[in-house]
Amino acid sequence: MFGETFLTTTVDTVLKWARKNSLYPMPFGTACCAIEFMSVVSSHYDLARFGAEVVRFSPRQADLLIVAGTVSCKMAPVLKTIYDQMAEPKWVIAMGVCASTGGFYDNYATVQGIDTIIPVDVYVAGCPPRPEAVLDAVIKIQEKIEKEQHAPLF
C-alpha cells in the first residue's frame, strides 16, 4: 500500500553513507603543502563537491586529519596530541612526501613520516601533490568508510 515510497536499509549503511559524505577535515598545515590544500578547498577544485568543505580548526569537531607539510621532531608531540583529541571515528591523510616519509628532509630535525607517530589511512605522493591527488585521497577515504565492516556507533 505504500508503493515505492519506502527504502529499507540498515543503520550501518546509513551511518556510513552519512559519514562518508560529511567529512570534516582538520588541516594540520605546517609547510608548503598547506598552501596547496587551500586551493583544494577553494572554488576551483572545490572539496565541497565531496561533502568535505567544512574545514574545522578544532580537532574536537573534525574527523579527517589532513597532515599537510613537514613535521619536525619538535612538532611531533603536538601532532600526536591533536590526533588523540579527535573523536572516533577518525581518519588521517598524509599529504605530500614530507608527511608521508620526511621527503627530502632526511635530516636530524624532521620526522621521517608521520606514520611513526600516528596511524595513516591514505598517503598522497607529490611535492606538493596536485589538488586532484588530494581529492582522490578524500575519495579513497570515502571508499574506505564505505567498506568498513561495522561502523562504530560512537
Partner: peptide
C-alpha cells in the same frame, strides 16, 4: 655529527623507514 642519526622526541628512533 652523524647525518643519519635520528633522535625523535616521540615515535621509534629506528623504525622500518
Amino acid at each position: 655529527y652523524d647525518a643519519t642519526l635520528r633522535q625523535p622526541l616521540i615515535g621509534p628512533a629506528d623504525g622500518p623507514d
